[in-house]
Write a protein that binds this DNA or RNA. Structure first.
Lengths: 215, 215
DNA sequence: GAAAATCTGTTGTTATAACAACGAAAGGAG
DNA sequence: CTCCTTTCGTTGTTATAACAACAGATTTTC
């Protein structure tokens, strides 16, 4: 993935990014599938950027139930909330869903006024705000999708957004069944059951991860 | 409330804030209890700051169920997420829980590089990032508190955080029963029932909005 | 201080989601 | 291709949360 395509670096040229990275002495690390990248309770000062692979943001309650807060594809940023609030321990765990490489950047250096007063710096800080806002929006959406009391309502809420985002009634979902259930905070088997009922009722059609929303 | 006590203006003197406000040509407006301040679907370019009173962030699904995403006491900021993402319609409604006065500031002006290159400006932008991060954290917490499948689990998750925040096992909650139920996404009467069971079981004691978490 | 309105706690019924268990299907590794 | 692992769909049972209805308590209003 080209660095200049990353949201956080919007408005910067590839060369600018490279020089910026060394200025912020960022570090690149690789993780194997399933490996934990940042774990709940830890205190971080770096924001992470997914360069390749896929990460998942999740948390576990005391009873061992997993709840998925979101996923991060290449180009997405994570842990920025905790990095921006000094001393705030992470409430979630970030782990690699597949082999993943991550770029870490110290947020303090991002926000500190660069001694060189380089224009990239202020640009970067502004982009970070945008990224943070988007993350909030994602969380709001998750809340909305889990606000219905019924499984069908949650699925429809989520599918509606997917369709809107895809600009089509047919779309792929980025989760497998267990992950979708965790995202919607419902039981997987019950959700599978509901999905087939919805198909029987003629509301949707699906095959694997492709969903078709019928009128 | 003193303006310089507001998180968003941290690091600024009272006088600086006043001059900043005129520079950003901010507007103050008053709302009656129950009045809608910003409604779902609208597009905003201003961030709101609660000066007095109390606001509530909520949303309604197609079936009329209300879900509460959070509340804003004096000093707190709202709509900053939508103001920071141009064109993004609001997913939530902000309304006044009691008589409330609100200060609106154009976010574009906050982020634009001030022609006077005043140092307050960069300070303000950095504070906005912090505020945004805190908001994200609040949402994460709500997600955590609603991740348990049982009402008791949700209550305990929420109460635990309250106790931690208050630094005591005894604390006041900022919601009435209906609002608490909406926040935890459960039915009020069932929740009331569960509360009294928990008291019977010796886990908690409560009287109105004061909760005591036992051992 | 009386009346109205809102909020709270309780009960019983019903719907529905969780849970457990299993076989089928799909995907990967050798 | 075959074995092994993971994912998916299905079923039946059980627990539990939603819902409706109401009475008592509390707060607000005039």
């Amino acid at each position: 993935m080209k660095l200049s395509d990353i949201q956080l670096f919007r408005g910067l040229e590839e060369d600018d990014v490279s020089s910026l990275l060394s200025c912020l002495n960022s570090v690149k690390r690789n993780y194997k599938k399933g490996e934990v990248i940042l774990s709940e309770g830890s205190i971080v000062e770096n924001i992470g950027i997914v360069l390749s692979g896929m990460v998942m943001i999740s948390c576990n309650d005391v009873w061992g139930n997993t709840s998925i807060l979101g996923s991060g594809a290449p180009g997405s940023v994570f842990a920025e909330v905790y990095a921006c609030i000094p001393g705030q321990p992470m409430l979630v765990t970030v782990s690699a869903v597949e082999d993943t490489s991550v770029l870490f950047m110290n947020v303090g250096r991002v926000l500190a006024t660069c001694t060189n007063a380089c224009p990239f710096h202020t640009n970067l800080a502004r982009n970070l705000l945008t990224v943070c806002a988007h993350k909030s929006l994602q969380l709001s959406q998750r809340v909305l999708h889990t606000s219905s009391k019924s499984i069908r309502g949650r699925l429809m809420s989520y599918f509606s957004e997917c369709a809107k985002h895809a600009g089509s009634n047919s779309f792929l979902i980025p989760y497998n069944r267990q992950q979708l259930a965790d995202y919607l905070n419902v039981d997987r088997s019950t959700m599978c059951n509901e999905l087939s009922k919805m198909q029987k009722d003629g509301i949707i059609e699906y095959k694997k991860n492709r969903i078709l929303l019928k009128d």
